[in-house]
Structure formats: structure tokens, C-alpha cells
């Protein structure tokens, strides 16, 4: 991680385009029928237990088995591949983009993800800090807890099978925690963001600068 960060460049990027483009691809092969149009607003999954599905985006039929796919993020549909309507698509084929408007917190997290070492979830499961890490976090806060490769930091829980997860990234302190105990995390989604202890002031500078800049922007109604 570089000590020098061009704040103006990073912030300028988010000012000019405060969206995240989420690509939506076919999850499996089959005949597709779109359920939204370019410009449609879509809702994300919601509810206390994330049990209320998002807006239906498309339906894929394979072997007379139609399956609806719903939005996992809110935003506006763009770049819809309407030429594919009624045709057979392959798994992984790009179908549309959802332009998701970023909030201040998401922008900060997004910038931090570029500068922190992100440790991802090995499988779709529920995650918990190991007892030792949890007790250190409770005593001192996560940013005082350092981790190094080989440390057992997290327990992965899947179907009553609890497996220790060993950290394999850069040595550093736990800056960001992206999971909530007891809530499922998808495979590959970030679990924690780690930064070397001596870079913490730089990270803090990023957070302060983005917050101040965004608050100013909101004050001026930009």
C-alpha cells in the first residue's frame, strides 16, 4: 500500500459517478425472459431476516423448469441485453447492469477495500471470530487486534460443522469487519479488512477526508 494517496483523484471519481455498476449474469444455461426494462428501478432483498426477495429481474427456463432471479441490490437497470429475450443463454453470460447509488458509508468502504488486505469467505456459511480473537476485540476493539498468516481467526459454521479459518494475508490489524455473526456470507465476500499497523493513520485520514468532503457536498445539495 502506498503512503501517498491522491485524494482529489479518488474523490473526484466518486463525485462524478457516485454509482457502483453491478453486473448481472446468467446463473445457469436456459431460455431467458426479462422481467424488467432499461431504466426500471429495482429493490434489493430486504426484511429483518433478508427473507423478502428483491425485484424479479428475469426468468430462465431449463428443462421446463422456470426459475426467477431477483435483485440483490437496489438501483436502476442499465445496459439490458434485450436482444437475448426468448433466446438460450449460457451460464455466466452478462444480462444487464444495476446502477447502484452509493451512500457515504459505501464510498468509504469501497475506497478502503482498495487499500486494505481483504480476507474473503472460503465458503457460503456463517462466520464468527475465534474465542481468542473475540475476547481481544471485546477488550481492546478490533483495531488493536493484530493478525498474522497462520493465525486461527475465524470459525466457519456450516450445517453444524465448525471449521477454523486460518488467516493467510498480510500481517496487520483488523480495520474493518464485514460480517455479522449469525448471518450467512457468500463465498468470496469479504470477511475482514486488514492493514499494517503503521498505515492506520493513513486509513483514518481517508475516512475523515471522505466524510468531510461528502458532508460538504450534501450541504451544498450537489
Amino acid at each position: 500500500m502506498s503512503d501517498e494517496i491522491d485524494f482529489d483523484e479518488i474523490l473526484g471519481k466518486y463525485h462524478s459517478d457516485p454509482y457502483e455498476d453491478v453486473e448481472i449474469c446468467a446463473e445457469h444455461t436456459g431460455k431467458i425472459r426479462f422481467l424488467v426494462e432499461d431504466g426500471s428501478s429495482v429493490e434489493s432483498v430486504r426484511g429483518e431476516w433478508k427473507h423478502i426477495p428483491g425485484t424479479p429481474l428475469f426468468e430462465i427456463t431449463r428443462e421446463r423448469n422456470p426459475k426467477k432471479f431477483t435483485a440483490m441490490t437496489n438501483g436502476v437497470v442499465a445496459s439490458l441485453r434485450s436482444e437475448l429475450e426468448g433466446r438460450f443463454v449460457e451460464a455466466g453470460e452478462k444480462l444487464m447492469v444495476i446502477r447502484h447509488p452509493l451512500k457515504k458509508k459505501e464510498i468509504i468502504e469501497s475506497i478502503l477495500k482498495e487499500v486494505l488486505y481483504i480476507f474473503p469467505a472460503p465458503e457460503r456459511a456463517k462466520y464468527f471470530f475465534s474465542l481468542d480473537v473475540q475476547s481481544r476485540i471485546e477488550k481492546k476493539g478490533s483495531r488493536a487486534v493484530s493478525v498474522k498468516p497462520g493465525d486461527e481467526i475465524i470459525i466457519m459454521s456450516l450445517m453444524k460443522r465448525d471449521t477454523p479459518v486460518y488467516y493467510n494475508g498480510e500481517k496487520g490489524v483488523i480495520h474493518s469487519v464485514y460480517f455479522t455473526p449469525g448471518v450467512s456470507v457468500d463465498q468470496g465476500a469479504p470477511l475482514i479488512g486488514v492493514c499494517p499497523a503503521d498505515k492506520l493513520p493513513l486509513i483514518q485520514k481517508i475516512v475523515t477526508r471522505v466524510k468531510a468532503d461528502w458532508d460538504k457536498k450534501e450541504e451544498h445539495g450537489v
Partner: peptide, 17 residues
Amino acid sequence: ALILNHDDGTTSIEHSG
């Protein structure tokens, strides 16, 4: 995974718990 039907007609899929 367990497929759980809520009273409001929605569904949860739980892999752990």
C-alpha cells in the same frame, strides 16, 4: 440447506443454525 417458509409468504434458505 433448510428452506423455511415465513407466514408472509416469503422464504429463507438457511445453511447453518
